[in-house]
Amino acid sequence: METAISAEGLRKRYGDHQALDGIDLEVPAGTILGVLGPNGAGKTTTVRILATLLDPDEGRATVAGYDLATQAKLIRANVGLTGQYAAVDERLTGRENLQLIGTLLRLGRKGARARADELLEKFSLVDAADRMAKTYSGGMRRRLDLAASLVAAPPVLFLDEPTTGLDLTSRLALWEMIKEQVDAGVTVLLTTQYLEEADQLADRIAVIDKGVVIADGTPDELKREVGGERLEVSVASLADLTAATRVLADVSPQEPVVDRDSRTVSVPLAGGVNTIAAAATGLERLGIEPQDFAVRRSSLDDVFLALTGQRGADEDPAGPTGPAQQDDQAAQAEQQKEMQAA
């Protein structure tokens, strides 16, 4: 597949702080790369370099087929950027904001107006089009900001924490709009602190910490490789818990993790189906009827914790019933069913 964004060994130093310490990235055309990492990991610096706002100290990159060092202006003509702040002129109306960008992009008066109308329609801003942007809600501003970065219909889009500070509804709406762009063939590099956001949107994820990429892969790969899968058994009584712990200790080389409050015991699923079978047989022999017997894949949260030693953003973007978690639960339920059938 064609590569839309590639970066090799990007380094950037601010004083004695090494913000980027050799970032390598590859984003195939028409896909979303989620760049995940704690605050200060170098996400924004990476985006700013790739969007030509900042020169790297070292390293090479091509964006939309153009070389960062020698063809910056061509890159600017082919990328859209939405930064952490909704960069709109508050004292212009939504329509004027988009028309100004269109004029600067030399679409001509008519062209700029037509493109503005089109984008206002697409981003559900028609009703507010002739109000000053400072009267907009946070979600509307973000939509206008995203629309502004799309005036040129760029094939590559950089989104730097596009949903930070938005409520659930606005966030879901923005996710939909981002997905639409990708369906239309746009390549997206998205930074986020929200694991669910990366899980939900990204085809691949690169985890950045202290200026280097410490892991990358599809969300599933990351969960498998880093977190692995665990066999988890919940029982009715504390007596059963002790027995179940002994059974799991027998089938796994590692110590079981016991949670007495939820009367749950779990071990890493090292031996695959054999481990599951052995555990089931062991429990049956002791006459223990588990309340829950399941293989759980680690969440992206576990991955993040394992890789960076930090939790993801505290603020849970989608809440406990967010779509990402619903998907997770659905997947788990499915796995459980398969297990029960086996």
Partner: peptide, 13 residues
């Protein structure tokens, strides 16, 4: 401070 400079600088102008 409101990011407009970034927006303008990211344009091919």
């Amino acid at each position: 401070n409101n990011g407009l400079v970034d927006r303008f600088r990211a344009l091919p102008i």
